[in-house]
């Protein structure tokens, strides 16, 4: 960190350029992984037995048709959805449409092109997840540090037990308990949804409970990780040196120890973000919050290939990109890695 202050003469471009080059290289190396992921997604989803067209066929709709018409309808829908082509051809069509045309196919569940719907769901998911994650992060840092500093003291033990309570209950259950307390008993918040159709309750009220569940369920991992990482760093020789120099305990902890403890925590951010999005299938269902989790849940019921493929590809890319994000994060926090990579 201090090295930049010394070499103050570096221009902005000189500082940023190595990162840009590095990111560029990493993105290029993503291409084969992206292709592998896309093949796996496509193969897996098409291995699911059953004809997706059948979930479009509604007994109410077809009950007035002759068998010939039903056959014709099923065939029409099949070609409308592109299911009449051989599977390998379908993969290439999908890749072509997704990568070059930006068209993600047609949703069976929503009876619309995927492009029209998916943006809204991704956006809403980002809103709760990022919000929740930032709060969790902000809370977990002081708690994790305090627990590490006071290792094996009462505070640490209380935190340990509380974090265990936090992960002992599945998040769907936590969601229902929160509803029971804050909605039914205290009447402070609305049950579920995104906004009040009557326009009475402000929108952010609807975010409180889903965000709380996300905070609680990601807090545990963060606190434990920060604590463990801090404990390790606090035992390092340079900390002893710093203490020996007679630095204030606060300076030792926040300046010397925490910055180094941050490195493994950066890894955790990268892992947690995709996990958050995926884990919300159940929570979003209970809060009737129409995000990616809700969309996935709906898509499974209907064997909605286009939506499944698009959202899994989205999750895959999100993870890969967050891996790059981790590495760049490493570069920023750890000068040794920075030197190694930008060379």
């Amino acid at each position: 960190m201090g090295s930049e202050e010394i070499k103050g003469s570096k221009t902005f471009v000189e500082i940023v350029l190595p990162y840009v080059v590095y990111i560029g290289k990493r993105i290029l190396s993503l291409i084969p992984v992206f292709l592998i992921i896309s093949v796996i997604i496509f193969a897996l989803i098409n291995m699911i037995p059953g004809d997706p067209v059948m979930s479009m066929v509604n007994p109410d709709v077809i009950s007035t048709m002759t068998p010939e018409q039903v056959s014709e309808y099923v065939e029409t829908m099949r070609s409308f959805l592109g299911y009449d082509k051989p599977i390998i051809q379908r993969y290439f069509i999908w890749m072509r449409d997704t990568v070059f045309r930006g068209q993600f196919g047609y949703s069976i569940r929503f009876n619309k092109p995927v492009n029209e719907i998916i943006g809204g769901y991704i956006g809403r998911s980002f809103k709760v997840n990022i919000f929740g994650f930032v709060i969790a992060f902000m809370i977990s840092i002081p708690i994790g540090i305090a627990a590490a500093v006071k290792k094996n003291k009462l505070f640490d033990k209380v935190v340990t037990v509380l974090t265990i309570v936090g992960i002992s209950l599945p998040s769907f259950f936590l969601a229902l308990i929160l509803i029971m307390i804050f909605v039914i008993l205290l009447g402070l918040l609305p049950f579920s949804g995104m906004s009040d159709p009557r326009g009475v309750i402000p929108d952010w009220h609807y975010l409180v409970l889903p965000v709380t569940v996300i905070v609680i369920s990601s807090l545990v991992g963060l606190v434990r990780y920060i604590r463990a990482s801090m404990i390790e760093v606090l035992q390092a020789d340079y900390i002893r040196t710093a203490r020996a120099k007679g630095l204030k305990e606060k300076v030792v902890i926040y300046k010397h120890a925490f910055q180094n403890a941050l490195i493994p925590v950066v890894t955790l951010i990268g892992f947690t973000i995709p996990a958050l999005f995926g884990g919300s299938i159940v929570v979003e269902r209970i809060f009737a919050y129409p995000g990616m989790g809700y969309l996935l849940g709906q898509a499974y019921g209907f064997k909605d290939g286009a939506v499944l493929q698009t959202s899994l590809l989205f999750f895959g890319m999100l993870t890969l990109l967050s891996n790059i994000f981790i590495d760049v994060g490493y570069m920023i926090v750890d000068p040794r890695i920075r030197e190694g990579r930008t060379k």
């Binding site: 291995m47 037995p49 996990a275 995926g278 299938i281 996935l296 895959g316 993870t319």
Partner: peptide, 18 residues
């Protein structure tokens, strides 16, 4: 990287379906 790039439940769903 590939296995961990998918949300757990998403893959679990598909395996269960297969």
């Amino acid at each position: 990287e590939v296995v961990s790039s998918f949300p757990f439940l998403a893959l679990a769903y598909i395996i269960a379906a297969v």
